[in-house]
Design a protein around this nucleic acid. Sequence first.
DNA 1: GAGGGTCAAGTCCGT
DNA 2: ACGGACTTGACCCTC
Length: 337
Amino acid sequence: MDAPFDLPQARIGWVCNWLVPELKEKEAKAFNLRDTTVAALLRLDLVARVDKLLDLVAHNAAALGRQVALTAALPPGQRAMRIASHAWPCYTHPATRPLYDEPALRAAIEELFPPIGEAAVAGDVRLSTHPGQYCVLTSAREEVLRSSVDEVEYHVELFRLLGLAGSWHPRGTHVNIHGGARAPGIDAFRAGMSRLSEAARNLLTVENDEVAYGLGDLLPLAGEVAMVLDLHHHWVATGEYIEPDDWRVATVAASWRGVRPMSHVSAPREELVGATQDLPDRAALLAAGVSARDLRAHAPRLWNGPHADWARRHLAWSDLEVEAKDKNLASAAFAAG
DNA sequence: GAGGGTCAAGTCCGT
DNA sequence: ACGGACTTGACCCTC
């Protein structure tokens, strides 16, 4: 409740991967975070496991530092990015989590990450994360709920080391998840939230999806958690091009309590819609035999002019993360358009 | 270096 | 009841 409107600048953000088409694949790796698998780690002996994680965490800190610097160098209206979730690989799996108690690994993390947060603040970069599909705060299964809480708290710990946790969405920082399982209902989300730390509840956001929890399903939570409006998910679910002056948008905006909201935008694949530059018509596409499932897929770019113009109007009240296969290239093109 | 198999996890939908 | 999709690759291993 304390935060002023601390980010007046409208921003277009990019997500997870920084593409550099002119570089060879190997060189481009320096710009992005690496990962490993639990199975691969467990095939190693104990010393090699820690060594491997040390190597990956050092690489990821360097890559994240580069990404923050690149984003800080963009015009003010493009200084927003989503951090890939594998900054600390395998951190939340029970079989590999204890490796992170090794003093050398812990020390490396505590040394390498705080300066990145300082650079983000100094460079006016808004940061977010988006835990994946396995993070389900509404799950009726205790073990799933527990691992989901662990997953959220991992992202919060990352932001704590970056100096961006502790109050309500500092500088717009957020950890964004979906509602999750439909059957347990919205009260299960409240129950899941009650298992989170206060720091986590201050960073959490909840985003509408196409299947389980749409915009209307989430609105009752607006007084309890900040809401991310995914414009594409809402279109896939309803066919509606929701407008910035809609009352539901006002409710979503108010859920951020004075911090500038974040919303998501993406476009359906061009080959499903055809060569037209008209606004894609969901009902007509479905009638023509296109499946709702296919409409969910993200196009490489925001390729449709009227669609991009509609999305751009939402910058009046919210920042926008562009979810597109071309990543930062799509965000930059959208910002330039 | 290339190619093919592997990868922790949940939920929903179609068959 | 079961397999595939979602996300969408990137990594790992063998040759």
